[in-house]
Computed example of a mutant assay.
Amino acid sequence: MDDEADLLVVNVTMAGAGLLGYGIHMVLFILATCLLTRRKTAGKKLLLVYTVAMALFGTTQLGLSVAQVVFTVQLFVQGGTRGQLAAGSALNLAPSFIFFTNNLVSDSLLLYRCFLIWGSQWPPVVLPGILVIATCAAGYNTTINSISHHAPLFDALAPNIFAAVTNLTLVAFTVGRIWWIRRDAMRVFHGAEVLNCYNTAIAMILESGALLLVPTILVIMPTPAVLRDILKGIAVHLINIAPTLIVVCVGLGHDIQDTVQSLHGNTFTAHPQVSIPVPPLQPPLSRQVLHIKQSDNDDPWATAKVC
């Protein structure tokens, strides 16, 4: 009965942690949908699609976790055989596939944000895009081989390592671009208001990145089994909590939207400095207004706005 008892403890622990993460996600989901439907937010249809998709993934994950607990309890009470225990392990196949598919959708939203911040240029997002796909592929491979007992192409920790590297790359590329434009903007604008505008954007991106990165690193590091199970249960919903939190901030008109909206005109060129034409012999102004043409693309991070 030791195998059944261990499986019961693992599944109950992960389900309990997952229930906590799911509750937080649902609160943010309801808030995000209310804000997007009641406010005239640019690109709200796209954001609603992503938000609803992540909510469906999270609900499915929780349902499968509960099903695993019910199956394990029945197995423990009835004194199931090792063959039945193996069948219970095979039940992990569906949650794992859904998890890595969910991670692909969540990362694609962050990748799209990075793409827009770089002025809709493809070269800067090629590497992060490859890492996003590699994370999903490694997760699928390790999941299949854990059930089929075939020699895996990747180590069991490979998906977590790929996920950590992907998260770091997306954060670095996004923050790096905002910092670069912030440096150019400070040559034109002088004052704490402009500086705080860009610093707020950078801080929020770092916070959302840490929200995903810290649990991943803790899972990779040697940790007690119970703590690892709790982290895995929470991580299932953290990949939805971080992007949904960003959607909430966009709906409120705070966070990166106010800053990043003004970045769309600064496309990735060989000379990215901000240029403001000034008529000859015109005396310098204490504060000039930077006008950036709004793109026709209806995106939440593509609408021109001055900080």
Rank of each mutant, 00 (worst) to 15 (best):
L48W: 11
Y50E: 11
Y50M: 13
A53T: 13
M54I: 14
A55R: 12
A55G: 14
F57D: 13
F57R: 12
T59N: 04
T59I: 08
T59V: 02
T60M: 09
T60R: 01
L62P: 03
L62R: 04
L62Q: 06
L62I: 03
L64W: 00
L64R: 00
S65E: 11
S65M: 15
A67G: 01
Q68K: 15
V69R: 05
V69Y: 13
V70D: 15
F71N: 06
T72Q: 15
T72D: 10
Q74C: 07
L75M: 13
V77Q: 12
Q78L: 08
Q78P: 00
G80Q: 13
G80E: 08
T81L: 06
T81Q: 03
T81I: 07
T81A: 06
T81Y: 07
G83Y: 14
G83N: 14
Q84T: 11
Q84L: 15
G88L: 12
G88D: 09
G88K: 10
A90Q: 13
A90P: 03
L91A: 06
N92T: 15
L93P: 01
A94M: 07
P95N: 04
F97V: 13
F97M: 14
F99A: 10
F99Q: 05
F100M: 07
F100A: 05
T101R: 09
N102I: 01
N102Q: 14
L104W: 02
V105D: 01
V105T: 02
V105S: 00
D107K: 11
D107H: 09
S108A: 10
L109Y: 15
L109K: 10
L111N: 01
L111I: 02
Y112P: 09
Y112W: 14
R113I: 10
C114W: 02
C114S: 10
C114Q: 08
F115R: 07
F115W: 11
W118S: 01
W118A: 00
G119F: 08
S120N: 11
S120C: 04
Q121F: 04
P123G: 08
P124L: 01
L127K: 02
L127E: 03
P128Y: 01
G129N: 08
L131T: 00
V132K: 06
I133M: 01
A134S: 10
A134T: 09
A134R: 04
T135I: 00
C136T: 08
A138T: 10
G139C: 02
N141M: 06
I144Y: 12
I144A: 14
N145F: 11
N145S: 12
I147A: 07
S148T: 14
H149D: 12
H150Q: 13
A151E: 15
P152E: 08
P152N: 08
L153A: 14
L153K: 05
F154W: 01
A156Q: 12
A156Y: 13
P159G: 03
P159Y: 00
N160Q: 06
I161P: 00
I161K: 09
F162L: 05
F162E: 02
A164E: 02
V165S: 04
T166Y: 00
L168C: 01
L170Q: 01
V171N: 05
A172V: 15
A172N: 13
F173A: 07
T174W: 05
T174Q: 04
T174S: 09
T174N: 06
V175W: 06
G176M: 08
I178F: 04
W179Y: 14
W179E: 14
W179L: 11
W180G: 01
W180Y: 12
W180M: 11
I181N: 11
I181K: 05
I181R: 02
